Simulated assay, not measured.
Amino acid sequence: MNVSLPVFHDDLSEEELDKIADKATAASAFLKAISHEGRLMILCHLVSGEKSVTELEDLLSARQAAVSQQLSRLRLEGLVVPRRDGKAIYYRLADDRPRKMLETVYELFCGDDA
């Protein structure tokens, strides 16, 4: 994917500047949501598919309250989607943004040159 960054110049309209600012706000919220190690690890586990809260607790070696708190933040930011099956709650990635971000992070920090 080849994405061009916005170029700021003197003749940008107020509408164009507002659009850039709105996208910056959304990107900032996304980055804040993934900036916690626990939330980042949850997203890593969900890349391979849907997991129950209990599965995530085991995978993260974390208490239910801590996992639920992090899942709540990820849900609030629209990064994960819950599904209830009886008493169990399962989570999956809401869309492809977390996967793309994790691929970029992996490339930056775990690639051949890292």
Rank of each mutant, 00 (worst) to 15 (best):
T25F: 07
A66E: 11
Y91K: 02
S52G: 09
Y91P: 01
S28R: 13
P82A: 08
A24V: 09
S28T: 12
A29F: 13
L5Q: 15
L17V: 12
L5F: 14
G49K: 13
L79I: 11
V47M: 11
S72Q: 06
K19P: 00
G78C: 11
D95N: 15
S61N: 14
L43P: 07
A88T: 11
T25Y: 11
T104M: 05
C44P: 00
E37M: 04
V105K: 01
Q70E: 09
T54R: 08
R84Y: 05
P82Q: 07
L17P: 00
H9P: 00
R84F: 05
L43I: 08
E37V: 12
R75A: 14
I89H: 04
I20M: 12
S35N: 03
M41W: 07
V105A: 02
I89K: 14
T54K: 06
H9T: 06
A26W: 04
D85S: 10
S13H: 12
A33E: 06
S48W: 11
Q69N: 13
S28K: 12
G86D: 05
A29Y: 13
T54A: 06
Y91N: 05
P82I: 11
E57Q: 10
E57R: 09
M101Y: 09
S61Q: 12
Q69V: 04
E37L: 11
R84D: 07
S72C: 00
G49V: 02
K87M: 10
K100T: 01
L108P: 00
K19Y: 10
D95Q: 08
S13V: 14
Y90Q: 02
A62I: 05
L5M: 15
P98R: 05
G38M: 10
R99L: 10
L79D: 13
V81A: 09
S13W: 12
Y106G: 08
D95W: 11
V53D: 01
A94S: 14
E15A: 12
L93F: 07
E14R: 07
S28W: 13
Q70P: 01
V80R: 01
G49N: 08
L93W: 09
M101I: 00
L93Q: 09
H45T: 03
L46W: 10
L108W: 01
R99P: 00
L17K: 12
A21T: 10
A21P: 00
A24T: 10
L5N: 15
I89C: 05
Y90K: 05
D18R: 10
L5S: 15
R92C: 04
T104V: 08
K23N: 09
L5G: 14
D22T: 02
D11T: 15
I34D: 03
L74P: 06
L108V: 01
E57Y: 00
R75K: 14
E57F: 00
R39D: 08
L93V: 02
S48R: 15
A66F: 09
D11R: 15
S28E: 14
A66M: 11
D10H: 07
E50S: 15
L43D: 03
R83E: 15
D11H: 14
K19D: 15
D18S: 12
L74H: 04
L102V: 02
S13C: 09
L74R: 03
A62S: 14
C44K: 14
